[in-house]
Amino acid sequence: MDKVWVLAEQSAGSPSAIALELLSKARDLAQQVEAITYGAGGQLAAATLGEYGATKVFDAGDLGDSLPGPKLAAAIAALAASEGAPGAILVGMTYDGRDVAARLSARLDRPLLTNVVGLAKEDDSLVTEHAIFGATKVLKARFTGEGPGIFVVRAKSFAAEPSSSGVPETAALDLPDAGATDAAKVKGRHAEEREGPALDEAPVVVSGGRGLGSAENYALIEELAKLLKGAAGASRAIVDAGWVPYSHQVGQTGKTVKPTVYIACGISGATQHMVGMKGAKNIVAINKDQDAPIFSIADLGVVGDVHKVLPKLIEAVKSRS
């Protein structure tokens, strides 16, 4: 494989963690690793992208009030036509990454593989790994048709490691008119306030599930998370129930987390949840049902009532400091 493209998301000049993970992986796959970036600060991000292996950075610049999907897919399709298509296009499984990959797939009429957690060269083709059935099985797959293959990769699948490569060449990426597909416009952006570290970067994640009994009891999760300098997570059940915002969700549909310690409180361990936290170094589970699936992967399982254990644990941590 001669060339791999990586869609590298960045914010104000800082590449996203997954962009650097993808670039690091791309170095194993091809000699020529080229990044495609967008948004204000792309020029600034180029240096870091180069550090992680990009030999060339195409910068689409600020997209204004457009959503990234339509314009970037049109631009990448045009780039493939003018520069020659790469063997593979790697995209992060993020809100925007999915949109870009989906539209690009339809534009190029190429299939895509999503939820990729592993990628390796085998005989001249790329073989993907996917965690299925609640990560109890690993499925390997590959494309059989003409490239480029579009791979949509879950966060934290690969380690981000800087390389010794030099300063990348940079080029402006032209944004073609995407017509009616680009008609959705962003009228306002809202950042939710967050105390402490981001959920997917925190060394400690304390998560709550249906076993908490009520939305009010989520305060216990937040308090313990804060005391441990960690982040508060949630199962899909209580996000669906409206107890906490979607941004707290850990699992298949939410965030993938790999903290030093994951503390699951009142979470039974649905497969959809386990996919998102199974990679934690250590897992502590508190659940009153001794048959809860979460105990099968917990390093320390406490069969007990979260309403009793959590307040005592909070007090114990407090009195320690």
Partner: peptide, 13 residues
């Protein structure tokens, strides 16, 4: 089959 995480210690509160 994926590498299984082993269950650790289970204590009853």
């Amino acid at each position: 089959q994926a590498d299984e995480r082993q269950a650790g210690e289970i204590v009853v509160d």
